[in-house]
Amino acid sequence: MKAVTLNNITKTYNKGTVLAVDNLSFEVEKGELFGLIGPDGAGKSTIFRLLTTLLLADSGTATVDGLDIVKDFKTIRKKVGYMPGKFSLYQDLTVEENLNFFASIFGTTIHENYELIKDIYVQIEPFKTRRAGKLSGGMKQKLALSCALIHKPSVLFLDEPTTGVDTVSRKEFWQMLKRLKEQGITILVSTPYMDEANLCDRIALMQSGKILSIDTPANITKAYDGKLYAIRSSSMHKLLIELRNYEFTESCFAFGEYLHITFKKDHIDHTNALLSYLKHNGHTNLELKTIEPSIEDCFIQLLKQ
């Protein structure tokens, strides 16, 4: 039995004028850490809200833990943990009160499932009498995760858990997810950060309610079509404009301190011709190298197809 299945799910908003999820189908294995990667508005949150029974789909069927999201929504609500993109705990209740509250409405206690949240909760326990609204962003995330876990869900939905969280806390957060995965919990996580994609077992790259590609991060980068180069010079802006106008350039994007560039008709090596062309245009400190494509490069390439 799969943890999550979607069959031809379509969801529109505003009486059908806004298409959020477009005839989508995919499956998530039990115990998998599955990532939905895509920019804002790709339909990630809608999928989560559909699967957590907060929304009804226009058409199509879906199951969570083998249960139908329409027929068995009551049972699903007992079995899933959901952490919305926006911090949705009671800001005027303390850390401990929030956790206690969510434990009790799921008919359990903090004590009963303490093992599961221990790793996360110990980090915020020193602040347990502090009101949730007064916590820092990272601590809010940890509290929200604790609350979503307190009833020992079989599937955990995390909607952009790391948005607005500092880099260190983000790393910590992903380590926590890894540990939860080891406990056998299926985790669906969405993120707009492509660099987090590599931390997932499998990912779905999404855009405009559609899945562009769904596979392991390694397979997705392996499927990258063509050779990718990174290039830099002393005047990057001029370089970008000139490269985009260069007749053999397929695509060129700024990527940190480099530009990532691909060429048309890849079997011919353009590098030498390009370098001399750029030198001729007055670029100094030129550096050109072949690189392994990242998920973001793949995403950009998929968008173009």
Binding site: L54, R77, Y82, S88, F106, C147
Partner: peptide, 13 residues
């Protein structure tokens, strides 16, 4: 408005 109802709605309450 705050969004807490979203969290409440996914519970079996």
């Amino acid at each position: 408005e705050i969004g807490t109802i979203e969290q409440i709605n996914v519970t079996p309450i």
